[in-house]
Design a protein around this nucleic acid. Structure first.
Lengths: 196, 196
DNA sequence: GCGCGCATATGATTTCGATCATATCGTTGG
DNA sequence: CCAACGATATGATCGAAATCATATGCGCGC
């Protein structure tokens, strides 16, 4: 869990609770940014609607995630936010957050570190998506996962992993099967062992 | 140009110059992080070498870009940095940067804003990569570009754009041709006009 | 001027992942 | 217990992008 809350909590700011049901909108493009949101429980999707009618999902913010970090430095939103299900949010008044960060350099540094980590993770993900072959993509992903002596625990269904990888679940199963055939990996119960 | 320099300059830090030729290495995985680098002129690629011998490019830092932001908060590097050509770098001592940011909350905030912008851009790029169809991907990319009354100036070869889009240049040319056929765009000299 | 490299552009063929279909297994709930 | 559902798994087919091939135009150096 990405615990952004621990970064803002020490600031001792006023906070309000917000609750959204599936499909409800938190803000829309162009709206003034008055608050900074953290997803406490649930999921909020950030959607950008393109002029041609299509839409792309910029961020899918789950438990503990900071919503639209860039909004802290922008007057208005550049995308829409929509709850993907029952969602509880924490809202902090933006001006107070900025003032507090100015007054507390340690907190600003901590947040900076958090942003840096997110950047690193996103860069890794982008690099992964640049790999064309399903097999190599899955292998690269496995190699990036935290491993214990070559053993990588897989705690969620492959179907979900497939989504993160930008592949269909069929493609992932096939890639795994090929990797086993080629002796690149071994499959254990709820885990994968790398042989590279 | 991503001018990260203007964020560190006001701190009045000691700086040193570094020069690399094509293929030269700035740092390698595991090395201690002693300095923070900004690319003054040229390009540095951040490469992560996978255990199986493959390599993925995490970041391609061009003029004015901050190199491996996350290194500011890490003791050692998690990737290799290699110059893609003749490259001039500015190096700032990491501890001094951190101290200065602690002492100057405005500078920390400014850097935070920069990181937030980078996050936003990366999110947009990642979302783009999620679009399968070459045609829609190119269209979405065009719609994200800064435009002046629907006119988008293209200042670099399509070949390079293709790389950013994760497509081959042939696919991009074909997508552009289709979009013109379907009257979604018009092609001007060194520019594209959106008709959506 | 001429040759060379590069961007642009498009045709032909191949490859590989998406899609559709199907089957098994394990869990969960009535 | 058994029906229902979801995860796992694999086969068949299709389509779209990669790859390979080729051609033109443009700028640049000799």
């Amino acid at each position: 869990m990405i615990d952004s809350l621990s970064l803002l909590e020490p600031l001792g700011l006023r906070r309000s609770l917000r609750h959204l049901s599936a499909g409800e909108t938190l803000f829309t493009t162009g709206a003034r940014v008055a608050e900074l949101f953290i997803v406490e429980k649930g999921r909020v999707d950030l959607i950008r609607h393109m002029p041609d009618g299509n839409a792309i999902r910029l961020q899918s913010a789950g438990d503990g995630a900071l919503l639209a970090e860039a909004s802290l430095f922008s007057d208005s939103y550049h995308c829409d936010a929509e709850a993907a299900g029952e969602t509880a949010l924490l809202a902090f008044p933006k001006p107070e957050v900025l003032d507090a960060l100015k007054a507390r350099p340690d907190a600003a540094l901590a947040l900076l570190g958090h942003f840096a980590g997110r950047l690193q993770a996103l860069r890794a993900q982008a690099a992964l998506f640049g790999i064309r072959s399903a097999q190599e993509r899955v292998l690269a992903w496995l190699q990036l996962q935290p491993s214990d002596a070559g053993i990588i625990a897989i705690d969620r269904p492959w179907k979900q992993v497939a989504g993160e990888l930008g592949l269909t679940h069929e493609a992932v199963y096939r890639a795994l099967a090929s990797l086993v055939r080629e002796r690149m990996i071994e499959r254990l119960d709820g885990a994968v062992k790398l042989r590279v």
